[in-house]
Design a protein around this nucleic acid. Structure first.
Lengths: 186, 186
DNA sequence: ACTCCTTCTCTAGCGGCGCTAGGTTCTAGC
DNA sequence: GCTAGAACCTAGCGCCGCTAGAGAAGGAGT
């Protein structure tokens, strides 16, 4: 008899362990500090074990972490909008978005800045991405061809990165959100 | 007698050679392909020579390339605005910005996405950065506390990255620019 | 109980990275 | 021609992502 659970269960557990460790490590010291050796150490095994779970190596691990991030971001935005309309909805979704990016900078980095980007659109990422996009669209109310939604996403994405890079006055964020809500509410 | 010019001249020339090679290499194959060995090969010397010119290593080289990029971007924006006001000015500056980012993706990456960011503000970067920021502000006309300018910069920055990542419909860029001009003019 | 076979895990190593200590060659000034 | 210093290279460090192949562990059949 095995120590605990079925083979598949143990595999799934360890897979999650790897993802958790990678995410924690990234948030603590940045993605460059997430090396295959350190990651293997963290889960109590050696490097090759990682490749058993993620044949694509570090890239696949980051991609998987990013995927979870998209789901979380979409959920946060949906929760923020609930029951709001007009400028309030826009301000709420903007606040939620920027908060998410600021609170989980490395997660956000994995989602948008790393070489995961290329050809992301075909698989299950589509669902989470679309879901987040829709949340933004919902905040705007009507947006026939999605152009305004694209613009709003652009502004939020850019702002989160520029804030993080120290290129925007942090204390002005409320002003920026107000400005955004004023200019984007239908 | 030396082969050509003074010592200082030869140093300056080679310094520029390194920067040119790094930039060309980055645009051709991305920054990860710009390694100290390949870079040294490209200028016909060995690695340690690079460190004579740029004690900070690869980071300092990228930072220097990025600095030139800021100057170019600011110039492109200023040229685009010339003689325009209102929505036309905003559209023109947006077009110039997005064009720059799309035409020199790796240069743009060095300017905004790489770990150069941290504490950039104290030295000569300030000038070029401020100059670009001012060009955006000029396109907007009046912007008392700079909030609208921050917002415009955010939108352009985010849009350029999302376009590059394939997350925005490329054929819709004119729509996005029009939307931007409409929402941001005065 | 013993063998066999699969499944799991580790050891060891490859090529490449950024970077640097220390020796060698060249050059300029006397 | 000699010498001091600048210029440059060789060789190597510790790290990276990744993998081939050896060996241990554990269940199935006899």
């Amino acid at each position: 008899m095995a120590k605990a659970g079925t083979r598949a269960q143990r595999m799934a557990e360890r897979r999650q362990q790897i993802l958790d460790a990678a995410r924690a490590m990234a948030e603590a010291d940045g993605w460059t500090a997430v090396t295959s050796r350190r990651l293997a150490d963290a889960i109590g095994y050696t490097q090759p074990v990682l490749y058993g779970h993620f044949p694509g190596g570090k890239t696949e691990i980051m991609r998987t972490v990013a995927l979870a991030g998209f789901a979380e971001l979409a959920a946060a935005m949906q929760a923020a909008i609930r029951g709001k309309t007009g400028p309030q909805a826009v301000a709420a979704v903007a606040d939620a978005y920027l908060d998410f990016a600021a609170t989980h900078p490395s997660l956000y980095e994995a989602m948008f800045q790393l070489p995961i980007d290329a050809r992301f659109a075909q698989d299950d990422a589509e669902t989470e991405l679309r879901s987040g996009f829709n949340a933004l669209g919902a905040a705007l109310g009507t947006d026939a061809d999605g152009t305004a939604t694209e613009l709003l996403w652009s502004a939020l994405h850019g702002m989160s990165l520029l804030e993080r890079a120290g290129r925007m006055r942090p204390e002005h964020r409320p002003n920026r959100i107000a400005e955004l809500a004023a200019r984007f509410a239908n």
